[in-house]
């Protein structure tokens, strides 16, 4: 193989190695924490229930913040200190207004990192009242349900920051300008071909 060929190959290998190293470094923080264990007395509860969370294999004598995190709302439960064995126990009364859904109970260290976590599903309080999707409810139920069901769009307040608008407008302008430039190039290319 010629010297320039070897140099090109070396450059490619170096580039690949550097890229892999950068990915590795970027990914490291994702796996740096969460060494403890958090267990719940139940993984399925309803709003208004009280959970018992137990932590173990955590830092000894550490202060941890406990939260239940959902997609739209986080419920803070204050702080707890682990004992000399790195364990703690805490009662978590779930607010009655918590919406059913998938949540995560997390123990957060003083530096803000999650030390331990466990999944939690909040079921509706009156699950039995919700009819099965495959069965039609009786007329009485349907009347009650129809008063809740609506085809109207939900009034969800979406705030778009000025920075977001800048990005949106920038991307649109970028696409338009890129399109025009490409089209010009293609037209002049066609003219050359002709």
């Amino acid at each position: 193989m010629s010297a320039p060929g070897r140099f090109t190959q070396l450059r490619w290998r170096l580039g690949v190695a550097l890229t892999l190293a950068a990915i590795g470094l970027a990914a490291t923080p994702l796996f740096a924490h969460e060494k403890g264990v958090l267990t719940l007395n139940t993984k399925q509860a309803a709003p208004g229930d009280t959970l018992v969370a137990r932590g173990s294999k955590l830092a000894k004598g550490a202060a941890l913040r406990i939260e239940i995190r959902g997609a739209l709302k986080t419920f803070p439960f204050g702080s707890v200190h682990t004992d000399a064995a790195g364990k703690f126990e805490m009662r978590l009364p779930i607010p009655a207004d918590a919406k059913p859904g998938a949540y995560r109970v997390v123990a957060i260290a003083s530096d803000g990192d999650v030390s331990a976590q466990e999944n939690l599903v909040l079921r509706p309080v009156q699950a039995a009242a919700v009819p099965s999707m495959t069965r039609m409810p009786d007329m009485t139920t349907m009347h009650v349900m129809e008063s809740r069901a609506t085809a109207a769009p939900a009034d969800i307040r979406v705030v778009t920051s000025s920075r977001a608008w800048t990005v949106i407008i920038g991307l649109i302008v970028f696409a338009l300008v890129g399109g025009v430039l490409l089209l010009r190039g293609a037209t002049s290319g066609s003219a050359r071909t002709a």
Partner: peptide
């Protein structure tokens, strides 16, 4: 997408049909 964002309805209620 900026001028006419996609809408989302209310949380679904099973067992009834009110939409098209």
């Amino acid at each position: 997408a900026a001028v006419f964002p996609a809408v989302l309805g209310h949380p679904g209620v099973e067992g009834v049909e009110v939409t098209k």
